[in-house]
Design a protein around this nucleic acid. Structure first.
Lengths: 191, 191
DNA sequence: CAGACATAGTTCGGAACCGCAAGTATTGTG
DNA sequence: CACAATACTTGCGGTTCCGAACTATGTCTG
């Protein structure tokens, strides 16, 4: 890596740029470091263990979710993987085409689709996940065991809080005015 | 949100699935919660403050980096934003087309390009960033001030560690065998 | 100073990704 | 049985994303 600016230098530059503005710096640093860490970790994993299996991050996450939970309805897979249903359809297709994942209709509710790993998928994950976990250990190297626990616990609280209160907060924020549509997207059929 | 499984339930399912396999659970929980939190926070911000300005996450991050540092060479912008140079070219184009960012050649080194916010870009960030920061406070609500500091500090250590040792680690991991090429990507001109 | 090498940025192929609209199929309900 | 609700897919338009190839420029060396 050997970046131009260290994370500490960046925080200093923020201080300089925003010295006069009243901000909540601790929360800012916490949130931005979450994203910095997530990006750095993801890149490390993509360029090591995932690359050797030709998996993208998202592909791996989807496999992981299905692996952990066994058979799972697609709507929940998308939610757990943090992607939209539409994206999942595409990602699942890719994984199916590689013989790692299979799709079945739900036995009693015909609207549902269920995902499951193929034997090849199971085998891949059984082989891959220990390697993945080794890299999780590597990236956590600077943390004491108790720190790792505390880190996980704090993040868990944030996620839980967002799951419980995020939607209401977004509603409150926009008040009356509905969210503007995205710049892109499918248009209505006629004006 | 109201997901099918809470983060605690997921961790329990992992325990059930992997109970027999010797794994490093603390690090696993830490890393996976970093990504869960990052995804949840990003989605919250995209669907609230960023949406009202029609900015994507990446677009905002690029603007933020340039805003904090003032004029900045593109290679450093990409690195700080956590995206590749190629991606930055496209993102910068989008932001230029909206009149938020401008591009200049470097005065002495003809290979370099420098980015800077336009007055409109400066105005947008001056208005937007406080709102963004308010949401950072919201998502950090479950954390004590000292906890937020501790969280940021632990993540900073992880990032620093990866920047210092990630590349060597990846080299060690693959040993002799070079990384396989990505499935996608530009091909050589002739076979 | 020519040729080799290094560096910075752009282009391009392929894939992922979102949000929305519309379409298909199925289930639940009055 | 009409009709609403639900679940997934498909397709659109746009963005993002990587990484290798390519272009342009700078630097080093004989």
């Amino acid at each position: 890596m050997s970046g131009h600016h260290t994370i500490a230098e960046t925080e200093k530059a923020v201080q300089a740029k925003l010295g006069a503005v009243p901000l909540h710096r601790e929360q800012m640093a916490a949130v931005s470091n979450i994203h910095r860490a997530a990006t750095a970790i993801r890149q490390h994993l993509e360029n090591s263990v995932l690359r050797t299996s030709d998996l993208t991050w998202t592909g791996f996450v989807v496999l992981w979710v299905v692996w952990i939970w066994g058979e799972m309805e697609t709507r929940y897979v998308a939610e757990e993987a943090g992607i939209s249903k539409g994206t999942l359809t595409g990602v699942a297709k890719t994984l199916q085409s590689r013989g790692l994942l299979e799709r079945m209709g739900h036995p009693t509710d015909g609207r549902l689709a269920v995902l499951r790993l193929t034997p090849e998928g199971e085998e891949l994950m059984a082989d891959l996940f220990p390697k993945f976990n080794e890299e999780e250990v590597f990236v956590s190297d600077p943390l004491e065991s108790s720190e790792a626990q505390s880190l996980a616990e704090m993040l868990r609280r944030m996620v839980t809080h967002l799951e419980a209160n995020g939607e209401q907060r977004r509603l409150d924020l926009r008040g009356d005015t509905p969210l503007p549509p995205r710049r892109s997207g499918r248009r209505a059929k006629h004006g």
